[in-house]
């Protein structure tokens, strides 16, 4: 028996929005520690890693480990049938392993819906991601990062991110010219969410495809802050924390000079 109840049901809508450009199907792995998902996009350039810890749910029961192969387009259709203030419960019965049920309850309990969705047999590859001490970790407002990625993609297909102790610089070039956006580390801010904080061991310069970074910024509604972790010649990690529950992380392989 698997049952996970989430009072903040709209969180699932935000999570699906944050994966929709990269994934069409994925396996949700459920265990006593929580629900997780790891999946690469079809070109194997980026990876989505989601963690929702069991203690972040309002009720959680997982008697045995369970892998649910889910068509995310179908799940999105079903989750759209919930209202933003609905309580969502995800249920899977050991006696009926080919389906998962989503139950939506209105806050006053007057409307209760349930939708049973067919599961898929997915042959998923899991990547072993080594623990890494990154050379640079930048924390910045998620909306600011979204804006930078959008603006840079007006100029070119790639962005070069250069991070020093003074700040982080985003540069793009294309047929129309070049663009640079430099964001300095915050001197002091009242609100933690508005801060730009740079933890640096060594300066790093890396180049990434803006197409993917813009896909990642679909997660902006999940968190006020985003963190970018970089080391020379390894994939970038873009992380949005999901309050009290876990995270949505994206890994992106860099572009290298020919």
């Amino acid at each position: 028996m698997f049952e996970a109840r989430l009072v903040q049901g709209s969180l699932l809508k935000k999570i699906l929005e944050a994966t929709k450009d990269l994934l069409t199907e994925a396996t949700f792995d459920c265990s006593s520690t929580g629900m997780s998902l790891q999946a690469m996009d079809s070109s194997h350039v980026s990876l989505v890693s989601l963690m929702l810890r069991s203690d972040g749910f309002d009720a959680y029961r997982c008697d045995r480990n369970l892998s649910m192969g889910i068509n995310l387009t179908s799940m999105t259709k079903i989750i759209k049938c919930s209202s933003n203030d609905d309580v969502v419960t995800i249920k899977a019965d050991d006696n009926n392993p080919d389906t998962v049920t989503f139950m939506f309850e209105s806050p006053n309990q007057e409307k209760v819906s349930d939708f049973e969705m067919k599961l898929m047999d997915l042959d998923t590859e899991h990547l072993g991601i080594p623990e890494t001490d990154y050379s640079v970790v930048v924390k910045m407002p998620a909306q600011e990062f979204q804006r930078v990625c959008r603006d840079m993609s007006q100029i070119g297909e790639s962005v070069t991110i250069c991070c020093t102790k003074d700040g982080i610089r985003f540069s793009a070039s294309g047929d129309l010219g070049t663009g640079n956006i430099k964001i300095a580390q915050s001197a002091n801010v009242d609100k933690e969410e508005e801060a730009v904080v740079i933890e640096m061991q060594e300066a790093v310069t890396l180049t990434f495809a803006l197409r993917y970074l813009n896909f990642f910024t679909r997660a902006t509604s999940l968190s006020g802050q985003v963190s970018l972790s970089m080391s020379p010649e390894v994939p970038l990690v873009v992380e949005y924390k999901i309050a009290d529950m876990g995270y949505m992380r994206y890994y992106l392989a860099p572009k290298i000079e020919d």
Binding site: S43, H44, V45, L47, L127, P130, A253, K255, D258
Partner: peptide, 14 residues
Amino acid sequence: DHTQTKLSDYFKVK
């Protein structure tokens, strides 16, 4: 010019 690398260049399949 830059070439896009893949995640399998960095991470191993479990």
